[in-house]
Amino acid sequence: MKKLFAMTCALMLMLSLAACGNTASNTATPSSTAAQTADSDLAYVKDKGEMVIGYTVYEPMNYTDDSGKLVGFDTEFAEAVCEKLGVTPKFVEIDWDNKFLELDSKSIDCIWNGMTITDEVTKNTNVTKPYVKNAQVVVMKADKVAEYTTPESMKDLKFAAEAGSAGESAIEENGLDANYTAVAAQTDAMLEVMSGSVDACVIDNTMATAMTGEGTSYASLAAGIELTSEEYGIGFRKGSDLTEEVNKIMDELKQDGTLQKLADTYQLTLAE
């Protein structure tokens, strides 16, 4: 009787151990798969079926037309890339000064809004190759532009620029920040000039070309000297495999003429 009881206990123990082994074996693969997915931004975006794109209103890159539709070079560029990725683009307006926090927290999947490639950008994002050339230019009342031909001649002027922007950096680097006001957007900087609160602002040349002069909302303003030359890139999370994938698609869109057509439409110059 004791032998039978012992054999029964031994059998039950073996079955229990086998069941535990099968459970561990069955759960190992999904956990491994989940870890791989977590490490891949490309898989993350494809799994949810959309790419969340952080932007600010910035003509001609991302802005709404008269019908209320979001258009612009970056808008249409992003749509073309998302089509090739097989996902839907979701555009979310962000506070430009908090763009890296938005990216790291996964509130957005990329920063795609005429973002100048700077040391700060390369430190905080995995940035793509350049796609458009740009410059930071001084914008002021059109009848004053001819009076100021060097940064030194502007030392006593009041300036405005978007907080955290390349324009802000250009003001600081050229020693023009003695009377400087940071604002929320580049359009706000131009409004400050229009109102007379400041003498000048520093914004992207792409915006200055599109939004100042005759026939625009800022007809009394004009672009003056360039303070810097630069290029735009798209920022993904550090280590993101989306960067390489988007670089490949960018090359395809250059080769088939899509990007050049967009550049011609929005009067931009593609990076080499």
Score class of each variant (00 low, 15 high):
Asp188Ser: 11
Ile203Lys: 01
Ala184Met: 01
Asp204Tyr: 15
Val193Ser: 11
Ala184Ser: 07
Ser217Arg: 06
Leu221Asp: 08
Thr209Met: 08
Gly224Met: 14
Tyr218Gly: 03
Met211Leu: 15
Ser229Asn: 14
Tyr232Gln: 02
Gly233Gln: 07
Gly233Pro: 03
Met207Trp: 15
Gly235Ser: 03
Glu231Cys: 07
Glu230Thr: 13
Met190Gln: 03
Ala200Glu: 12
Glu214Ala: 14
Tyr218Phe: 14
Val202Tyr: 02
Asn205Gln: 14
Ala185Ile: 00
Gly215Val: 03
Gly235Leu: 06
Ala223Ile: 12
Gly235Val: 02
Thr216Ala: 11
Gly235Ala: 05
Met211Ile: 07
Ala185Asn: 00
Val198Pro: 09
Val183Met: 09
Asn205Ala: 14
Val202Ile: 13
Glu230Lys: 02
Ala208Phe: 06
Ser197Leu: 06
Glu226Leu: 13
Gly235His: 00
Gly235Asp: 09
Gly215Cys: 15
Gln186Met: 10
Asp204Glu: 06
Thr209Asp: 12
Thr228Ser: 14
Ile234Thr: 05
Thr209Cys: 08
Thr209Phe: 11
Thr209Tyr: 13
Asp188Gln: 02
Glu192Lys: 12
Thr228Met: 11
Gly196Cys: 13
Thr187Glu: 09
Glu192Ile: 03
Ser195Asn: 15
Gln186Arg: 05
Asn205Cys: 02
Met190Leu: 04
Ala223His: 04
Asp188Trp: 02
Ala200Leu: 15
Ser217Trp: 07
Glu214Leu: 15
Ser195His: 08
Ala210Tyr: 01
Glu192Gln: 09
Val193Ile: 01
Tyr232Asp: 05
Ala208Glu: 04
Asp188Val: 04
Met211Phe: 09
Gly196Ile: 02
Ala210Leu: 02
Ile225Asp: 11
Asp188His: 06
Gln186Val: 04
Gly215His: 05
Thr228Phe: 14
Leu191Pro: 00
Met211Thr: 08
Ser195Arg: 10
Met190Lys: 07
Ser217Tyr: 03
Met207Gly: 02
Met211Arg: 13
Gly215Ser: 07
Ser197Arg: 08
Tyr232Pro: 00
Ser197His: 01
Ala219Lys: 12
Val202Asn: 10
Met211Asn: 12
Leu221Ile: 13
Ala223Trp: 15
Val193Ala: 10
Glu226Tyr: 06
Ser229Tyr: 14
Gly215Arg: 08
Glu226Trp: 15
Ile203Val: 13
Gly233Val: 00
Asp204Thr: 07
Glu214Arg: 09
Ala222Cys: 13
Asp188Arg: 02
Ser217Val: 02
Ser197Gly: 05
Ala208Met: 05
Tyr232Trp: 10
Asp204Met: 14
Thr216Gly: 05
Val198Leu: 09
Gly215Phe: 14
Glu226Ser: 12
Ile203Glu: 05
Thr212Glu: 02
Ala222Tyr: 04
Ile225Met: 06
